[in-house]
């Protein structure tokens, strides 16, 4: 289990316990986090589950692989140094407390 928080630009926060093994796109759509669509179901084809990872959690959320890195080129909101596709972040005890920011179009 990991306690995950999504923060939106307008200051809203959604926090939930996510079962180990679920990816954070699934967790976001199940909990109605805005802007996270997850259209391709997590197979790295759509880039609609883009999040920014709180800097202090960057290391623990792991490396961005080559496909994810490429798909981050086509997010709606331009990528930043802390961009991830949340379908590639899998809930685990060491992510307990993780904070993600939801990119929102201007």
């Amino acid at each position: 289990m990991a306690f995950i928080t999504w923060k939106t630009k307008d200051g809203n926060e959604i926090s939930v316990d996510v079962k180990d093994g679920l990816n954070l796109m699934e967790a976001a759509t199940a909990n109605n986090v805005p802007q996270i669509e997850g259209e391709c179901g997590g197979c790295l084809s759509c880039a609609t589950c883009h999040v920014f990872v709180d800097d202090q959690w960057l290391e623990k959320t792991g490396e961005v692989d080559e496909i994810e890195d490429t798909m981050l080129e086509m997010t709606d909101v331009e990528r930043q140094h802390n961009s991830r596709l949340s379908c590639q972040i899998i809930a685990a005890p060491d992510l307990d407390g993780l904070v993600l920011f939801v990119p929102e179009p201007e």
């Binding site: 790295l44 080559e66 496909i67 490429t70 798909m71 080129e73 086509m74």
Partner: peptide, 10 residues
């Protein structure tokens, strides 16, 4: 070749 897809879409 995800880069071709990503850039193709753009």
């Amino acid at each position: 070749e995800p880069m071709a897809y990503a850039m193709g879409r753009k």
